[in-house]
């Protein structure tokens, strides 16, 4: 193989990424989503540092105030600045979204690729298990997991969410692996003496990358939503910490008197979900043409 040929192959190898980039460049909504999400994320992490208030600093004499130049989004019942609370809550919601998705990604990809690769009876058994868990009330299981351990810390919440969100990922990866396993180049690698692990890591998983990326992007908003549902029911993040779910819950109780306490967190929350869903849809069009009809 000459140096030129090798470069040629290396260039072709990145074509998935380049194709996707070309597609995304043409997809206006995905771009808007991307810019929006980056803006919100930056705001959440930088904003609180720039403000003169902190998320737990109370001012009881002040009480709930409508939005003003001093407190842009108003204050909550304890006189805490809502702008800062929304941004710090956003840090929690977004981090939980990413961390739980990472847990789901690791479990799902490992489980799915092994099931698809080994095939036969073991594959049947493994996927039967996924089907069985799939048939269960997800949220109930997460609720049980979160109350099981009295310490309501963040790590537990995202472990619990990740522990139920991996199923779809496992199904997708298993489907892909099954299709790839029978291809000639995998046989060639076997003949060549490659170990199972290296076949999986070097030859099969890289070819599943498209669907994995797409589904990962779509899992993040689903996880953020689930965390908010938990917090809304009082089972998630505990005070004085906040997340968007907690703030929306507090605001919803007093929507007739202090509507801004619901509206501002709801706007941030919904815009983030919008942005992530548009990015996910755009990536699906770009990376997974079969699914995007």
């Amino acid at each position: 193989m000459t140096k030129h040929e090798r470069e040629q192959i290396a260039n072709d190898a990145t074509s998935l990424g380049r194709d996707a980039w070309e597609q995304i460049k043409r997809n206006r909504m995905a771009q808007i989503g991307g810019v929006l999400f980056i803006t919100i994320t930056l705001l959440c992490w930088i904003g609180p540092a720039l403000s003169s208030y902190s998320f737990e600093q109370q001012n009881l004499a002040y009480g709930p105030q409508a939005p003003s130049t001093e407190h842009w989004f108003g204050t909550d019942d304890l006189g805490r600045d809502l702008f800062v609370r929304i941004l710090t809550g956003g840090q929690v919601s977004i981090s939980v979204g990413f961390a739980a998705t990472l847990v789901a990604l690791i479990i799902g990809v490992t489980y799915g690729s092994i099931a698809g690769y080994v095939g036969g009876k073991s594959e049947d058994l493994m996927m039967r298990f996924v089907d069985a868990v799939y048939a269960l009330p997800f949220t109930m299981i997460v609720i049980i997991l979160t109350v099981t351990f009295n310490e309501k810390n963040l790590i537990l919440i995202f472990m619990a969410i990740g522990a139920v969100e991996w199923l779809t990922m496992a199904r997708i990866v298993r489907g892909q692996t099954r299709a790839l396993r029978k291809l000639n180049y995998v046989d060639a690698a076997k003949v060549y003496g490659a170990s199972h692990l290296s076949i999986l890591l070097k030859h099969i998983l890289p070819n599943c990358l498209g669907p994995i990326i797409v589904y990962t992007t779509l899992t993040i908003p689903a996880v953020i939503l689930l965390e908010s549902v938990l917090s809304f029911l009082g089972l998630g993040v505990q005070p004085p910490m906040s997340s968007w779910g907690v703030l929306i819950n507090e605001g919803a109780k007093k929507i007739d008197i202090y509507p801004w306490q619901l509206i501002f967190p709801a706007i941030f929350f919904s815009l983030t979900l919008f942005a992530l869903n548009f990015i996910g849809d755009g990536l699906r069009d770009a990376l997974d043409p079969k699914e995007s009809k």
């Binding site: 605001g251 919803a252 929507i255 619901l262 919904s270 979900l273």
Partner: peptide
């Protein structure tokens, strides 16, 4: 993108 606990209230 507007979950039930936002739409409801």
């Amino acid at each position: 993108c507007l979950p039930s606990f936002v739409i409801g209230p």
